[in-house]
C-alpha cells in the first residue's frame, strides 16, 4: 500500500500517467469516428507513415525537440493520408490495398532513414528509435502541455462539428445531398485523426498506435447504442488504460509503458466483446440457447 502511495506521489509517474491518460482520452474520442467510418486501418497507415517524418525532421534541422519531430511526423502522416485517399479516388485500387502500399513504403523509408541517421558521426541522433515502440518515460512536462493543448483543440472541433460528423459518419452521400461540403467533411475528421495519432507517437510508438485508436472505440460500441455514449465510454476506456498501464509499468521493473497500455486497452476490448449485454458473445450464445429451448418446449425443432 505504501509502495502504491509512493508511486502515485512520484512526479515522473504523475507526468507519464497524465500524458498516457490524455492520449487514451483523445484517441478514444477520435477512434470512435474512425471505427464508425470504417477507416480503422487508416490510423495504422498514418502512424507508420509518421516515422520517416520524425527522422527527416531531425536530419533537416538537427534538433531533437519533440515539437519539431512531431511536426515532421504530422507532415508525412498527412501526406500518406493524401496519397491513400488519392489512390482510392483516382484508380480502381481499393482502400485496403492502397493503405498497405502506402504504409509499407513510408515505414520502409522511415527505417532506411533511421538506419542512415544512426551511422552519422553525430551522437545526437540517439533516441530517435523510441518512436518505433514508444517510450512513455521520456515524456516531459512540456510534452504534456503540448498534448493538452492539441487535445483541447481536437475535442473542441468534435463538439463544434458534432452534428456534421455524426451525419457524415452515418450517411456521407445524404450529407452531400443536403449541401454539406463533402470535401471539408472528408478532410476534417481525417485530419483530426492524424493529429490524434501524432500526439500518441512518443508514448506508444508508430507500430502500436492504431490499437489506441481502435480498441477503446470497439470496446465502447459494445456497451452503448448512442453515439455520444460511445464516444464518452471510448474516452474513459482509453484514459483508464493509460493510467493502469503506467501504474503497472512503474510497479514492475522491465515492463515498457506503451506496450503495457496497449495490452490493457486490448484486454478491455476483448472483455467487452465477450460479456457486453446484447452485443456480447456470451449473451448471444445464451439467447440462442434460450430461443431453442423455447421452440422445443412449444413442440418445434428437433424431436
Amino acid at each position: 500500500m505504501e509502495k502504491l502511495f509512493a508511486i502515485f506521489t512520484d512526479y515522473t509517474f504523475q507526468t507519464v500517467a497524465l500524458g498516457s491518460a490524455l492520449l487514451g482520452l483523445i484517441s478514444g474520442v477520435l477512434g470512435s469516428f474512425a471505427v464508425l467510418r470504417r477507416q480503422s486501418l487508416l490510423g495504422d497507415g498514418v502512424s507508420h507513415a509518421a516515422l520517416p517524418g520524425v527522422v527527416m525532421a531531425f536530419l533537416l534541422t538537427g534538433i531533437k525537440n519533440t515539437e519539431i519531430l512531431l511536426l515532421g511526423a504530422l507532415l508525412t502522416g498527412l501526406l500518406a493520408t493524401f496519397f491513400i485517399m488519392g489512390i482510392v479516388r483516382h484508380s480502381r485500387i481499393k482502400f485496403d490495398s492502397a493503405l498497405a502500399l502506402v504504409m509499407s513504403v513510408f515505414f520502409g523509408l522511415g527505417l532506411v532513414l533511421l538506419t542512415y541517421s544512426q551511422k552519422l558521426p553525430n551522437a545526437n541522433q540517439a533516441g530517435l528509435n523510441r518512436f518505433i515502440y514508444g517510450q512513455a518515460s521520456t515524456l516531459l512536462q512540456r510534452d504534456i502541455v503540448l498534448m493538452g493543448v492539441c487535445g483541447f483543440v481536437l475535442l473542441l472541433f468534435v463538439v463544434l462539428f458534432w452534428k456534421e460528423f455524426k451525419l457524415f459518419s452515418f450517411d456521407p452521400e445524404f450529407a452531400a445531398s443536403l449541401g454539406f461540403s463533402t470535401g471539408k467533411l472528408n478532410v476534417l475528421p481525417s485530419f483530426l485523426i492524424v493529429l490524434a495519432i501524432i500526439i500518441g507517437l512518443q508514448t506508444v510508438g508508430v507500430v502500436l498506435m492504431s490499437a489506441m485508436l481502435i480498441a477503446p472505440a470497439v470496446a465502447a460500441r459494445q456497451w452503448s447504442h448512442r453515439l455520444w455514449l460511445m464516444v464518452c465510454l471510448a474516452a474513459i476506456f482509453g484514459a483508464l488504460s493509460g493510467v493502469i498501464g503506467t501504474l503497472l509499468s512503474s510497479s514492475y521493473a522491465g515492463l515498457p509503458t506503451g506496450p503495457v497500455i496497449v495490452v490493457c486497452v486490448t484486454l478491455i476490448a476483448a472483455l467487452s466483446l465477450l460479456v457486453a449485454p446484447r452485443r456480447g458473445i456470451l449473451h448471444r450464445i445464451y439467447l440462442r440457447r434460450k430461443t431453442r429451448a423455447y421452440i422445443e418446449s412449444e413442440g418445434g425443432g428437433v424431436s
Partner: peptide
C-alpha cells in the same frame, strides 16, 4: 447504402433530414 449498425436511434436519423436547414454548428 449505409451501415445500420450505427449507434443511433430512429428519431435521430429522421432529424438528420433537417440538418441542411439548420446549417453548420446549430443543433436540432
Amino acid at each position: 447504402s449505409v451501415d445500420w449498425d450505427f449507434p443511433t436511434t430512429v428519431l435521430d436519423v429522421v432529424m438528420m433530414g433537417r440538418y441542411g436547414h439548420l446549417g453548420w454548428f446549430t443543433r436540432p
